[in-house]
Design a protein around this nucleic acid. Structure first.
Length: 277
DNA sequence: CAATATACCTGGATGC
DNA sequence: TGCATCCAGGTATATT
């Protein structure tokens, strides 16, 4: 499900309920997500610990625990984190529950089970985080996300700019919905080989990325205040989308019908007037 | 090495 | 109503 904005809204929504709380008990469904639930590590290094801070890197949430351990959660395609009174009955596909001293419970619900849960024990957490972070792409809100760096990264890469934006090893947090929206806003055709883009194109892509991701987070912000019981479904589609899933509807700028195609196996939407080849 | 295909899952929409 | 088929916001791995 979630791309950078949804993960960020989840983080902001969870933060006031979790930070400073002790995780009293942990329960899991017994089903494996993308990887098996790390039961032993959860028992040893998460249960009984106080959650100090929740951070985000790419589409991963990092729960930093007192003592230096880290609980890592990825939401995959359908994962949602919500917070509920502990006595609320379990929902189908609830796979991980963290009971807090406050009497509330953080629940990870993931029907497709493409999500992932990992634990970095205090002894190795620093090293594991450095390795992890090195594998992930540039954060769109960081200074390094610049037309100069993108031009450099695109050297010798002939793949479509849309696949380039969605490659998490290059750029963090941009998935299919926002790749479509960003390229539309930047007026760049999604099939353009990354290596052929000019600095001015990358400039518009940088600006459009920050603008659209910021607006998406702001749109999800309305859910943050009443995150409790929300089943953590933070405002997907709350942002007004221009092209994603809009095949046949008029382009907001020029009214030409939005086209649908497939790039890299993913649904692609564009306006051929505003994003000429 | 770069680029593409495939596998992992469930559920909703669509068509017969 | 039932059943088959296709499609979905992600990512690791295998294959070209």
């Amino acid at each position: 499900m979630p791309e950078l904005p949804e993960v960020e809204v989840t983080r902001l929504g969870l933060r006031p309920h979790l930070e400073g709380q002790r995780i009293r008990t942990i329960r899991w469904s017994g089903k494996k997500l993308r990887t098996p639930m790390p039961r032993k590590l959860l028992k040893e290094h998460v249960e009984g610990k106080v959650a100090m801070v929740i951070d985000r890197r790419a589409k991963y949430l990092l729960f930093r625990l007192q003592g230096g351990g880290v609980l890592v959660i990825h939401l995959g395609m359908t994962g949602k984190l919500g917070i509920f009174p502990a006595r609320t009955s379990l929902a189908k596909h609830d796979h991980l529950c963290l009971t807090l001293d406050s009497g509330m419970e953080v629940r990870l619900n993931d029907s497709r089970r493409f999500g992932a849960v990992a634990v970095w024990p205090p002894k190795t957490a620093q090293e594991q985080e450095i390795e992890f972070s090195a594998r992930e792409g540039i954060e769109p809100f960081s200074k390094t996300f610049s037309k100069e760096e993108l031009t450099r990264l695109a050297q010798k890469r002939t793949l479509a700019v849309k696949s380039f934006l969605m490659n998490g090893k290059l750029i963090a947090g941009i998935g299919n919905i926002y790749a479509n929206e960003i390229l539309y806003s930047a007026r760049v055709h999604p099939l353009t080989p990354a290596v052929t883009l000019k600095p001015s194109d990358w400039h518009r892509i940088v600006e459009a990325s920050r603008e659209i991701l910021t607006r998406a987070i702001a749109a999800g912000g309305s859910t943050i205040s009443d995150f409790i019981g929300s089943s953590g479904n933070p405002g997907y589609f709350q942002l007004q989308l221009s092209v994603y899933d809009k095949a046949g509807t008029p382009c907001p700028a020029c009214s030409r019908p939005i086209e649908k195609s497939v790039i890299g196996g993913r649904a692609t939407y564009l306006c051929l007037n505003c994003q000429p080849p």
